[in-house]
């Protein structure tokens, strides 16, 4: 079986999987080309980006903001932003797909961080709560996310303890703040902050 791309280019036979990128080998590069077309004022290109990624972007944003209506507002703003700023996209600095996901994700993160003022407790209370939690907590060996098989970071993520991977993904996927992660993981806030900082450093080390 052969597939014909939008421009009539024929792709070699590929196995059909859930992964759209595998289905269409040029998908990753298409996003950059579509952004360049947006910068030239071609609305059809924006519509194609919307058709390609709209539901995935909405899934990512809805997970972070926790409200379908607000998530749609953010996707509206994200696509207007993508249209207005397409000329600033620089293909030499990253893929178009990464660019549009980061536009939408950061709008969602700015929304939840601005809307929910962080609850702070005084240092003494925080220390006491931390000490209690540290004593009670058992080691959580279970992964909360089915993370394997998605990206080049797999090899390095595998070197982290499951608990630490959970912290990273509760932040990246759920959009949780440090205190929210501490609550979800039932771990002291200071521990969670230190874990995340060290995990990021360990990932950089592993990649270098």
């Amino acid at each position: 079986m052969r597939f014909t791309g939008p421009s009539g280019v024929r792709f070699k036979e590929v196995r059909v999987t859930d992964d759209a990128a595998a289905f269409n080998p040029s998908a990753a590069d298409d996003h950059g080309a579509l952004l360049e077309a947006c910068a030239r004022g071609e609305r059809q290109a924006l519509q194609q980006l919307y058709a390609l990624e709209g539901s995935r972007l909405l899934g990512v944003v809805a997970r972070i903001v926790g409200d379908r209506g607000i998530a749609e507002d953010i996707i509206h703003d994200a696509f207007v932003n993508i249209w207005n700023k397409a000329h600033t996209f620089d293909a030499t600095r990253g893929s178009g797909k990464t660019w549009i996901f980061s536009v939408a994700r950061h709008l969602a993160l700015n929304h939840v961080r601005t809307r929910h003022r962080e609850v702070t407790v005084d240092d003494e209370t925080a220390d006491r709560l931390d000490a209690e939690r540290a004593q009670e907590a058992e080691t959580d060996m279970q992964d909360h996310f089915d993370w394997l098989g998605h990206g080049d970071l797999d090899r390095c993520l595998a070197q982290l303890a499951p608990e630490r991977r959970n912290c990273l993904f509760h932040a990246y996927v759920d959009g949780f703040s440090h205190p929210e992660i501490a609550t979800r993981m039932d771990r002291p806030l200071g521990t969670v902050k230190a874990w995340i900082k060290r995990s990021l450093a360990a990932l950089r080390e592993c990649l270098s």
Partner: peptide, 23 residues
């Protein structure tokens, strides 16, 4: 952004309402 973006695929897509694109 480049390292982490592939992991957004862990999230289930949500189909936008028909009103979103016209908006």
């Amino acid at each position: 952004e480049r390292r982490l973006q592939p992991y957004t695929a862990m999230v289930e897509p949500v189909a936008p309402s028909n009103r979103l694109w016209p908006r």
